[in-house]
Design a protein around this nucleic acid. Structure first.
Length: 101
DNA sequence: AAACTGACTTCTC
DNA sequence: GGAGAAGCCAGTT
């Protein structure tokens, strides 16, 4: 079920370049609601098409991976690593790999 | 229309 | 610095 907000989130998420990641808060902000990080997560959860929306490039504000409905966080992390995202143990190195819009 | 839920964020202890 | 609690937003029931 697509809504306006959901639509915007998808569009923004689709703009995230490979090898970079964005935080939920960041996407929320770009979507028009700086505090809607939670809502963004909900949209990602509802979305099940990673070919259309690279939800694996969306992480928590502290760089930790959360959720992922395609096979678990382990898969998500693997995908990010494959794309060239800098990792610090189980967390993304936002200082290096956070997407700057 | 009201209440509950959730892939979040931030403050406080 | 780590753990716990409160707050916010949009969607779903």
């Amino acid at each position: 079920m697509k809504t306006n907000f959901n639509q915007k989130v998808y569009e923004i998420a689709g703009k995230i370049p490979a090898g970079k990641v964005a935080t939920y808060g960041q996407l929320a902000k770009l979507a028009g609601s700086p505090r809607a990080a939670r809502a963004v997560g909900m949209c990602m959860r509802n979305n099940t098409d990673r070919n259309l929306v690279p939800c694996h490039r969306v992480v928590a504000s502290n760089g930790e991976l959360t959720g992922y409905a395609f096979g678990g966080l382990n898969v998500k992390r693997k995908l990010l690593v494959e794309e060239g995202v800098s990792f610090n143990k189980e967390k993304v190195d936002l200082k290096v790999s956070q997407w700057k819009s």
